[in-house]
Amino acid sequence: MAAVVAVFLFIGVIAYCLLGGADFGAGFWDLTAGGAARGRRRRHLVDTSLGPVWEANHTWLIYCLVILWSGFPRAFAAITTTLYLPLGLAALGIVLRGAGFAFRKAAFRTPEQRVYGLAFALSSVLTPFCFGAIAGGIASGRVPTGGAGDPVTAWLNPTSALGGVLAVAVCAYLAAAYLRVEAHRRRAPDLERHFRTMALLAGLGTGAISIAGIFVLRYDAPHLWHQLSHRAVPLVVVAALCGAASVALAATGRITGLRLLAGAAVAVIVLGWGVAQYPYLLGTHLTVDEAAAPAPTLKVLVGVAVTAGVLILPSLVLLFRLAGRGRLGMSYDDVSH
Protein backbone atom coordinates (compact mmCIF):
# COMPACT_ATOMS: atom_id res chain seq x y z
CA MET A 1 0.00 0.00 0.00
CA ALA A 2 2.84 2.36 0.85
CA ALA A 3 4.33 1.77 -2.59
CA VAL A 4 0.98 2.60 -4.22
CA VAL A 5 0.82 5.90 -2.35
CA ALA A 6 4.43 6.58 -3.31
CA VAL A 7 3.45 6.05 -6.95
CA PHE A 8 0.55 8.49 -6.58
CA LEU A 9 2.91 10.96 -4.96
CA PHE A 10 5.27 10.63 -7.89
CA ILE A 11 2.46 11.07 -10.40
CA GLY A 12 1.83 14.37 -8.66
CA VAL A 13 5.51 15.31 -8.85
CA ILE A 14 5.61 14.58 -12.58
CA ALA A 15 2.37 16.47 -13.23
CA TYR A 16 3.67 19.45 -11.30
CA CYS A 17 6.94 19.38 -13.24
CA LEU A 18 5.14 19.29 -16.58
CA LEU A 19 2.31 21.74 -15.89
CA GLY A 20 3.51 23.91 -13.02
CA GLY A 21 7.01 23.78 -14.50
CA ALA A 22 5.80 25.19 -17.80
CA ASP A 23 4.14 28.03 -15.90
CA PHE A 24 7.40 28.80 -14.12
CA GLY A 25 9.21 28.68 -17.43
CA ALA A 26 6.72 31.12 -18.92
CA GLY A 27 7.79 33.47 -16.14
CA PHE A 28 11.40 32.98 -17.26
CA TRP A 29 10.50 34.04 -20.81
CA ASP A 30 8.50 36.90 -19.39
CA LEU A 31 11.62 38.06 -17.56
CA THR A 32 13.73 37.87 -20.73
CA ALA A 33 11.07 39.21 -23.11
CA GLY A 34 12.67 42.63 -23.41
CA GLY A 35 11.40 46.15 -22.71
CA ALA A 36 7.79 47.15 -22.30
CA ALA A 37 7.26 47.83 -26.02
CA ARG A 38 9.18 44.94 -27.52
CA GLY A 39 8.10 42.38 -24.98
CA ARG A 40 4.45 43.37 -24.88
CA ARG A 41 3.11 40.79 -27.30
CA ARG A 42 5.37 38.07 -25.91
CA ARG A 43 4.14 38.82 -22.43
CA HIS A 44 0.61 38.91 -23.68
CA LEU A 45 1.00 35.44 -25.13
CA VAL A 46 2.29 34.27 -21.76
CA ASP A 47 -0.69 35.91 -20.03
CA THR A 48 -3.30 34.44 -22.30
CA SER A 49 -1.77 30.97 -22.39
CA LEU A 50 -1.40 30.73 -18.62
CA GLY A 51 -4.57 32.56 -17.62
CA PRO A 52 -7.09 29.75 -17.68
CA VAL A 53 -4.84 26.97 -16.41
CA TRP A 54 -2.21 28.28 -14.00
CA GLU A 55 -4.28 27.86 -10.85
CA ALA A 56 -5.17 24.29 -11.72
CA ASN A 57 -1.52 23.58 -12.53
CA HIS A 58 -0.38 25.06 -9.24
CA THR A 59 -2.72 22.76 -7.35
CA TRP A 60 -0.48 19.80 -8.12
CA LEU A 61 1.98 21.21 -5.61
CA ILE A 62 -0.66 21.15 -2.89
CA TYR A 63 -1.49 17.59 -3.93
CA CYS A 64 2.16 16.54 -3.49
CA LEU A 65 2.45 18.25 -0.10
CA VAL A 66 -0.69 16.69 1.37
CA ILE A 67 0.13 13.21 0.08
CA LEU A 68 3.63 13.57 1.53
CA TRP A 69 2.59 14.77 4.96
CA SER A 70 -0.34 12.38 5.36
CA GLY A 71 1.27 9.35 3.76
CA PHE A 72 4.86 9.81 4.92
CA PRO A 73 4.70 12.19 7.89
CA ARG A 74 8.18 11.34 9.23
CA ALA A 75 9.80 12.06 5.91
CA PHE A 76 7.82 15.28 5.62
CA ALA A 77 8.96 16.49 9.05
CA ALA A 78 12.55 15.49 8.25
CA ILE A 79 12.44 17.47 5.01
CA THR A 80 10.85 20.57 6.50
CA THR A 81 13.18 20.73 9.49
CA THR A 82 16.24 20.34 7.29
CA LEU A 83 15.27 22.30 4.20
CA TYR A 84 13.27 25.07 5.82
CA LEU A 85 15.31 27.77 4.09
CA PRO A 86 14.64 26.80 0.45
CA LEU A 87 11.07 25.81 1.39
CA GLY A 88 10.49 29.22 2.94
CA LEU A 89 11.99 30.96 -0.09
CA ALA A 90 9.86 28.87 -2.43
CA ALA A 91 6.73 29.72 -0.42
CA LEU A 92 7.48 33.43 -0.61
CA GLY A 93 8.27 33.05 -4.31
CA ILE A 94 4.91 31.38 -4.90
CA VAL A 95 3.11 34.25 -3.20
CA LEU A 96 4.95 36.88 -5.23
CA ARG A 97 4.47 34.93 -8.40
CA GLY A 98 0.77 34.27 -8.04
CA ALA A 99 -0.01 37.79 -6.89
CA GLY A 100 2.21 39.35 -9.55
CA PHE A 101 0.60 37.34 -12.31
CA ALA A 102 -2.97 37.86 -11.12
CA PHE A 103 -2.58 41.57 -10.48
CA ARG A 104 -0.67 42.34 -13.65
CA LYS A 105 -3.61 41.12 -15.63
CA ALA A 106 -5.97 43.24 -13.60
CA ALA A 107 -3.72 46.32 -13.42
CA PHE A 108 -4.14 49.00 -16.06
CA ARG A 109 -1.11 51.24 -15.98
CA THR A 110 2.25 50.25 -17.40
CA PRO A 111 4.35 51.12 -14.30
CA GLU A 112 2.07 49.02 -12.11
CA GLN A 113 2.12 46.21 -14.62
CA ARG A 114 5.90 46.40 -14.66
CA VAL A 115 6.15 45.97 -10.87
CA TYR A 116 3.71 43.07 -10.82
CA GLY A 117 5.33 41.56 -13.89
CA LEU A 118 8.81 41.73 -12.37
CA ALA A 119 7.56 40.08 -9.19
CA PHE A 120 6.00 37.34 -11.32
CA ALA A 121 9.08 36.83 -13.47
CA LEU A 122 11.79 36.91 -10.79
CA SER A 123 9.93 34.57 -8.49
CA SER A 124 9.30 32.27 -11.45
CA VAL A 125 13.05 31.68 -11.56
CA LEU A 126 13.69 31.62 -7.80
CA THR A 127 10.96 29.09 -6.98
CA PRO A 128 11.90 26.27 -9.38
CA PHE A 129 15.52 26.71 -8.37
CA CYS A 130 14.55 26.14 -4.75
CA PHE A 131 12.46 23.09 -5.65
CA GLY A 132 15.31 21.65 -7.71
CA ALA A 133 17.72 22.28 -4.85
CA ILE A 134 15.33 20.56 -2.44
CA ALA A 135 15.12 17.54 -4.75
CA GLY A 136 18.93 17.49 -4.93
CA GLY A 137 19.22 17.57 -1.16
CA ILE A 138 16.78 14.68 -0.76
CA ALA A 139 18.28 12.62 -3.59
CA SER A 140 21.84 12.99 -2.36
CA GLY A 141 20.89 11.80 1.11
CA ARG A 142 21.40 15.09 2.94
CA VAL A 143 18.10 14.91 4.81
CA PRO A 144 18.57 12.72 7.91
CA THR A 145 15.68 10.50 9.02
CA GLY A 146 15.31 12.39 12.29
CA GLY A 147 15.31 15.71 10.49
CA ALA A 148 17.22 18.85 11.53
CA GLY A 149 20.04 18.23 9.05
CA ASP A 150 22.48 20.95 8.09
CA PRO A 151 20.31 23.90 7.05
CA VAL A 152 22.89 25.26 4.59
CA THR A 153 24.72 22.38 2.94
CA ALA A 154 21.51 20.36 2.60
CA TRP A 155 20.51 22.60 -0.29
CA LEU A 156 23.72 24.40 -1.20
CA ASN A 157 25.75 21.48 -2.53
CA PRO A 158 26.72 20.16 -5.97
CA THR A 159 23.67 17.92 -6.47
CA SER A 160 21.30 20.66 -5.30
CA ALA A 161 22.99 23.19 -7.56
CA LEU A 162 22.53 20.77 -10.43
CA GLY A 163 18.90 20.17 -9.43
CA GLY A 164 18.17 23.89 -9.14
CA VAL A 165 19.77 24.92 -12.42
CA LEU A 166 18.30 21.93 -14.22
CA ALA A 167 14.84 22.76 -12.86
CA VAL A 168 15.04 26.33 -14.15
CA ALA A 169 16.33 25.13 -17.53
CA VAL A 170 13.72 22.39 -17.87
CA CYS A 171 10.93 24.82 -17.00
CA ALA A 172 12.19 27.31 -19.58
CA TYR A 173 12.49 24.58 -22.18
CA LEU A 174 9.00 23.20 -21.58
CA ALA A 175 7.50 26.67 -21.61
CA ALA A 176 9.24 27.65 -24.84
CA ALA A 177 7.98 24.49 -26.54
CA TYR A 178 4.42 25.05 -25.29
CA LEU A 179 4.47 28.75 -26.16
CA ARG A 180 5.81 28.01 -29.61
CA VAL A 181 2.79 25.78 -30.26
CA GLU A 182 0.45 28.36 -28.73
CA ALA A 183 1.89 31.04 -31.00
CA HIS A 184 1.40 28.79 -34.00
CA ARG A 185 -2.17 28.04 -33.00
CA ARG A 186 -2.85 31.75 -32.79
CA ARG A 187 -1.14 32.36 -36.12
CA ALA A 188 1.38 34.87 -34.79
CA PRO A 189 4.48 34.07 -36.94
CA ASP A 190 6.87 36.49 -35.25
CA LEU A 191 6.10 35.03 -31.82
CA GLU A 192 6.43 31.58 -33.30
CA ARG A 193 9.92 32.40 -34.59
CA HIS A 194 10.91 33.89 -31.25
CA PHE A 195 9.83 30.92 -29.19
CA ARG A 196 11.22 28.48 -31.74
CA THR A 197 14.67 30.00 -31.22
CA MET A 198 14.16 30.05 -27.49
CA ALA A 199 13.01 26.43 -27.42
CA LEU A 200 16.10 25.44 -29.37
CA LEU A 201 18.42 27.36 -27.05
CA ALA A 202 16.73 26.09 -23.92
CA GLY A 203 16.70 22.52 -25.24
CA LEU A 204 20.40 22.60 -26.02
CA GLY A 205 21.12 24.25 -22.68
CA THR A 206 19.12 21.65 -20.79
CA GLY A 207 20.95 18.90 -22.64
CA ALA A 208 24.33 20.40 -21.79
CA ILE A 209 23.41 20.77 -18.13
CA SER A 210 22.19 17.17 -18.04
CA ILE A 211 25.48 15.90 -19.47
CA ALA A 212 27.44 17.96 -16.95
CA GLY A 213 25.10 16.56 -14.32
CA ILE A 214 26.37 13.04 -14.98
CA PHE A 215 29.76 14.03 -13.56
CA VAL A 216 28.26 15.94 -10.65
CA LEU A 217 26.15 12.96 -9.58
CA ARG A 218 28.98 10.51 -9.99
CA TYR A 219 31.07 12.54 -7.61
CA ASP A 220 28.44 13.88 -5.22
CA ALA A 221 25.62 11.29 -5.12
CA PRO A 222 27.22 7.95 -5.96
CA HIS A 223 24.24 5.82 -4.97
CA LEU A 224 21.85 7.78 -7.16
CA TRP A 225 24.42 7.70 -9.95
CA HIS A 226 24.77 3.95 -9.63
CA GLN A 227 21.03 3.35 -9.84
CA LEU A 228 20.58 5.78 -12.69
CA SER A 229 23.29 4.05 -14.64
CA HIS A 230 21.93 0.56 -13.91
CA ARG A 231 18.31 0.05 -12.96
CA ALA A 232 17.00 3.29 -14.44
CA VAL A 233 19.19 3.33 -17.51
CA PRO A 234 16.39 2.52 -20.01
CA LEU A 235 14.46 5.52 -18.77
CA VAL A 236 17.51 7.77 -19.01
CA VAL A 237 18.04 6.62 -22.59
CA VAL A 238 14.38 7.18 -23.51
CA ALA A 239 14.49 10.64 -21.94
CA ALA A 240 17.65 11.52 -23.84
CA LEU A 241 16.10 10.32 -27.12
CA CYS A 242 12.88 12.27 -26.53
CA GLY A 243 14.87 15.36 -25.63
CA ALA A 244 17.08 15.09 -28.68
CA ALA A 245 14.09 14.46 -30.94
CA SER A 246 12.21 17.47 -29.60
CA VAL A 247 15.25 19.71 -30.08
CA ALA A 248 15.52 18.39 -33.63
CA LEU A 249 11.84 19.19 -34.17
CA ALA A 250 12.35 22.69 -32.84
CA ALA A 251 15.37 23.15 -35.11
CA THR A 252 13.52 22.04 -38.23
CA GLY A 253 10.52 24.19 -37.36
CA ARG A 254 8.01 21.40 -36.97
CA ILE A 255 5.08 21.62 -34.63
CA THR A 256 3.55 18.15 -34.57
CA GLY A 257 4.67 16.23 -31.51
CA LEU A 258 6.87 19.01 -30.15
CA ARG A 259 4.94 19.47 -26.93
CA LEU A 260 4.49 15.74 -26.53
CA LEU A 261 8.18 14.93 -26.95
CA ALA A 262 9.36 17.79 -24.76
CA GLY A 263 6.93 16.76 -22.03
CA ALA A 264 7.84 13.10 -22.39
CA ALA A 265 11.55 13.86 -22.01
CA VAL A 266 10.94 15.66 -18.72
CA ALA A 267 8.39 13.16 -17.40
CA VAL A 268 10.64 10.19 -18.12
CA ILE A 269 13.71 11.71 -16.51
CA VAL A 270 11.73 12.56 -13.37
CA LEU A 271 10.38 9.02 -13.42
CA GLY A 272 13.98 7.83 -13.75
CA TRP A 273 14.85 9.70 -10.57
CA GLY A 274 11.95 7.98 -8.81
CA VAL A 275 12.97 4.54 -10.04
CA ALA A 276 16.60 5.15 -9.09
CA GLN A 277 15.63 6.25 -5.61
CA TYR A 278 13.13 3.46 -4.87
CA PRO A 279 12.71 1.92 -2.29
CA TYR A 280 14.21 4.86 -0.43
CA LEU A 281 12.31 8.04 0.25
CA LEU A 282 15.27 9.86 1.80
CA GLY A 283 18.78 9.15 0.56
CA THR A 284 19.61 5.55 1.42
CA HIS A 285 18.38 5.62 5.00
CA LEU A 286 14.57 5.91 5.08
CA THR A 287 12.51 3.57 2.93
CA VAL A 288 8.99 4.18 1.68
CA ASP A 289 7.66 1.44 3.96
CA GLU A 290 9.45 2.74 7.06
CA ALA A 291 8.14 6.26 6.54
CA ALA A 292 4.57 5.23 5.74
CA ALA A 293 1.56 6.17 7.83
CA PRO A 294 -0.76 3.45 9.21
CA ALA A 295 -2.70 1.52 6.56
CA PRO A 296 -6.14 3.22 6.98
CA THR A 297 -4.60 6.61 6.21
CA LEU A 298 -2.91 5.20 3.12
CA LYS A 299 -6.22 3.72 1.99
CA VAL A 300 -7.91 7.11 2.33
CA LEU A 301 -5.13 8.68 0.28
CA VAL A 302 -5.49 6.08 -2.45
CA GLY A 303 -9.22 6.77 -2.38
CA VAL A 304 -8.62 10.49 -2.69
CA ALA A 305 -6.20 10.00 -5.56
CA VAL A 306 -8.60 7.71 -7.42
CA THR A 307 -11.49 10.11 -6.85
CA ALA A 308 -9.27 12.89 -8.12
CA GLY A 309 -8.68 10.84 -11.24
CA VAL A 310 -12.40 10.23 -11.75
CA LEU A 311 -13.61 13.73 -10.92
CA ILE A 312 -10.78 16.02 -11.81
CA LEU A 313 -9.30 14.58 -14.96
CA PRO A 314 -12.53 14.97 -16.97
CA SER A 315 -13.01 18.56 -15.77
CA LEU A 316 -9.36 19.29 -16.43
CA VAL A 317 -9.69 17.88 -19.94
CA LEU A 318 -12.79 20.02 -20.42
CA LEU A 319 -10.88 23.10 -19.29
CA PHE A 320 -7.85 22.43 -21.47
CA ARG A 321 -10.03 21.58 -24.45
CA LEU A 322 -12.15 24.68 -24.11
CA ALA A 323 -9.01 26.75 -23.62
CA GLY A 324 -7.28 24.97 -26.49
CA ARG A 325 -10.18 25.38 -28.89
CA GLY A 326 -10.18 29.07 -28.21
CA ARG A 327 -13.61 28.96 -26.62
CA LEU A 328 -12.04 30.30 -23.46
CA GLY A 329 -8.82 31.64 -24.84
CA MET A 330 -7.90 34.30 -27.32
CA SER A 331 -8.12 34.74 -31.02
CA TYR A 332 -5.47 36.09 -33.33
CA ASP A 333 -7.11 39.51 -33.23
CA ASP A 334 -6.51 39.77 -29.53
CA VAL A 335 -2.86 38.85 -29.72
CA SER A 336 -2.14 41.11 -32.66
CA HIS A 337 -3.12 44.26 -30.84
Binding site: V66, W69, S70
Partner: peptide, 13 residues
Protein backbone atom coordinates in the same frame (compact mmCIF):
# COMPACT_ATOMS: atom_id res chain seq x y z
CA UNK B 1 2.99 17.06 11.15
CA UNK B 2 5.66 14.46 11.85
CA UNK B 3 3.75 12.88 14.72
CA UNK B 4 0.12 13.40 13.72
CA UNK B 5 0.29 13.96 9.97
CA UNK B 6 -0.82 10.36 9.53
CA UNK B 7 -3.90 11.10 11.60
CA UNK B 8 -5.13 14.51 10.61
CA UNK B 9 -3.22 15.13 7.39
CA UNK B 10 -5.64 13.37 5.09
CA UNK B 11 -8.50 15.90 5.45
CA UNK B 12 -6.11 18.29 3.72
CA UNK B 13 -5.83 15.81 0.87
Amino acid sequence: MGRYGAAFGFPFA
